[in-house]
């Protein structure tokens, strides 16, 4: 079974072709480049590198957030359109889980992305070699709340994807390069999606909607 995997949620970009969970080719970057200009080009390169035919793909797996709103939208738009055009199955995976799986760490891990003003998009997982349990589902929360949650475990590791803003206020953390090729052994982390109705998990309403709801409370 050939899978095409796509993650453009934040500054890092990760695309891969896996056969039966085994990585044939992957491109992972952490440079500041516009995903909109690069992601389709890199996907094209994966097929060229492997000399595989595009329509041999059985399923597409996309990291559908949380993350940068624009970044997540690019990945989801590309994944939806490719799945529609190829007529393949479409799966989503949390962008936070991609970081957890990429670290190869066992035990309690808390991947998080900066959400500004002391807030993060975070989750807590108990990772085993090819299974996991979700302790805290992906959510928009304060960094403090996440740290309180983590203090209830004997040991835990905060995982970041290289973004500097959060790390400036953290003492203990590990940077991990997101590699979406690593998620496939964790079948329960993958959610089968309807192609047309897949939308990003922003985990936060837009600022305009927030202000509007504030003004129209009554």
């Amino acid at each position: 079974m050939l899978s095409l995997l796509i993650d453009t949620s934040n500054r890092p970009l990760s695309v891969a072709l896996n056969r039966d969970g085994f990585t044939l080719a992957e491109i992972n970057t952490t440079v500041k480049k516009t995903h909109s200009a690069t992601v389709m080009d890199y996907i094209d390169k994966l097929f060229k590198m492997t000399e595989l035919k595009k329509n041999d793909v059985h399923r597409i797996i996309v990291a559908n957030g949380p993350g940068s709103y624009t970044g997540v939208r690019i990945g989801v738009t590309v994944a939806k359109t490719l799945a529609y055009a190829f007529g393949t199955e479409l799966y989503s995976v949390s962008s936070l889980f991609v970081v957890a799986a990429s670290s190869s760490r066992k035990g309690i891990v808390a991947p998080l992305f900066d959400a500004r003003r002391g807030n993060v998009f975070g989750a807590v997982y108990n990772m085993k070699s090819d299974s996991f349990t979700e302790k805290v589902a992906p959510a928009h929360m304060s960094l403090e709340d996440l740290q309180t949650e983590l203090s209830s475990y004997d040991s835990s590791v905060i995982l970041l994807d290289g973004q500097e803003k959060v790390s400036a206020n953290l003492e203990d953390f590990v940077h991990t390069v997101p590699r979406i090729s690593m998620v496939e052994p964790f079948e329960t982390a993958l959610e089968k999606e309807d192609i047309h109705s897949l939308v990003p998990e922003y985990l936060r309403i837009s600022e305009a909607e927030r202000n509007w709801m504030e003004q129209n409370k009554s």
Binding site: Y69, T70, Y84, H196, V199, S206, A208, W212
Partner: peptide, 24 residues
């Protein structure tokens, strides 16, 4: 309408909701 003008982030969110359906 509720915002009295087009809000870019809201517009982008709506586009991704319907894009493949519209193409189909």
């Amino acid at each position: 309408k509720r915002f009295g003008g087009v809000v870019p982030e809201v517009a982008s969110r709506h586009h991704v909701e319907t894009i493949t359906l519209v193409i189909e």
